[in-house]
Design a binder for these strands. Sequence first.
DNA 1: GGCGCCCTCGCTATTTTTGGGGACTTGTTT
DNA 2: AAACAAGTCCCCAAAAATAGCGAGGGCGCC
Lengths: 236, 236
Amino acid sequence: MKGRLDDLIEIIRPVASLDELSQSIARLRDLLDIDHIVYHAVNASGGQFAALTYPDPWVTEYLDRGYQRTDPVVRGCMQTFHPVDWKTLDWSSRGARDFLGEAMAAGVGNQGVSVPIRGPGGQFALFTANHRCDDDTWARYSGTHLSRLILLAHFVHQKALEVQAGAPPPLARLSPRETDALTLLARGKSRAQAADELVISEHTLRVYIEAARDKLGALNTTHAVACALHGGLIVI
Amino acid sequence: MKGRLDDLIEIIRPVASLDELSQSIARLRDLLDIDHIVYHAVNASGGQFAALTYPDPWVTEYLDRGYQRTDPVVRGCMQTFHPVDWKTLDWSSRGARDFLGEAMAAGVGNQGVSVPIRGPGGQFALFTANHRCDDDTWARYSGTHLSRLILLAHFVHQKALEVQAGAPPPLARLSPRETDALTLLARGKSRAQAADELVISEHTLRVYIEAARDKLGALNTTHAVACALHGGLIVI
DNA sequence: GGCGCCCTCGCTATTTTTGGGGACTTGTTT
DNA sequence: AAACAAGTCCCCAAAAATAGCGAGGGCGCC
């Protein structure tokens, strides 16, 4: 085993830009002794960022054709907590088979393990180890490397967040009653029901909602609930 | 260092029930050589599960008083991806200070690191290492143990999911248009604006919203947006 | 003692959303 | 070939949310 865990993490630690992150991903790939590594984040604003070692033509095609909607790896990882071996995914649909064929043809390995990564506000990213080999070899490899893949996924994502230009948006603070109000609305209560539950008049409740809306700079109640949820201000 | 990582994971691996998980948490605590470990999951249905080593009276008080709403650790972890050292949290509000005082009095250590854990469908859990010692000692400890805490958090959560009787709540799938519709609403657009943006009639948009509401079992649009956001089906 | 924030309540009018119908086309799956 | 899901459009009436005006008491901070 070429790379000790600490060495691997040490590759990520000093990274200071997204470019450097891409280079570090390539070095990780070498140390882990596999064909490809992919870090692919879908950030909150809908933009994407990826640092990966796949051949450029495949990346271009993937993006152009909007394959993230079809990709069984993405879909599978969205639904699970634990890392996913590609073999356990559902490749039966026609779209998935076509996709797989094209990926193989483009130089992507037949074996893979993808680690789903989730952050606050619906952040979602994937960290994938990809290789071309037979099933047994891959089973041995992924068995012994799972822990470090999980950790690398964590640190790579953290670094990506860190070096991303985005300033941490200053989050407004809601008063207890405002929190209560938005929480109940987020749980599907109507204003009347929520007021009832909080044992206040509907009008008072309205005041809270409006205050919360103002504080959050939201355009309407639904938006306010979305913002509050997004910012971890309320819990369903 | 008493516990090698593999030994620690080996404690979790054979666990087959929630009770055993609680016992394993206590063994982990011993091997990690700290005062307390807390695994605390808030599942999507609002229920809670915890496996922890805090004194019972404190647990009871925490639950009775609904402290998860006040607890700065919970609030802080909800908003961040990376593990949180308790010292970096905001303890300035009066509620937070009172809470801290009571926790200390009840036998909780003054130092802590909490690892947020997120899964699909808005799963959220915390894995906390807690200890009573001075700042320097803790800084050394948490520095060297961070990686294993992250991994333990991962494996403990995975095990908790695995042994939990509850069937994994099947999350409805939204069609692309339904996703678009809810996304725009979550961003504060009115139906008219959203329809405009998607270049469809408002009536059509309404059909999507209603379909999404039905699929998600939501009581109204705000609820549907909250559910979708919570379940990671849409991203603001 | 004043300033600001939080909690509480009332009224009216307008705009928006929701819920109930139905109908057509284009795909994919079986 | 039939079934199904998805996308698109329409009308109408009832319910809910929004916007505007107002008022008073309590608490903490400088």
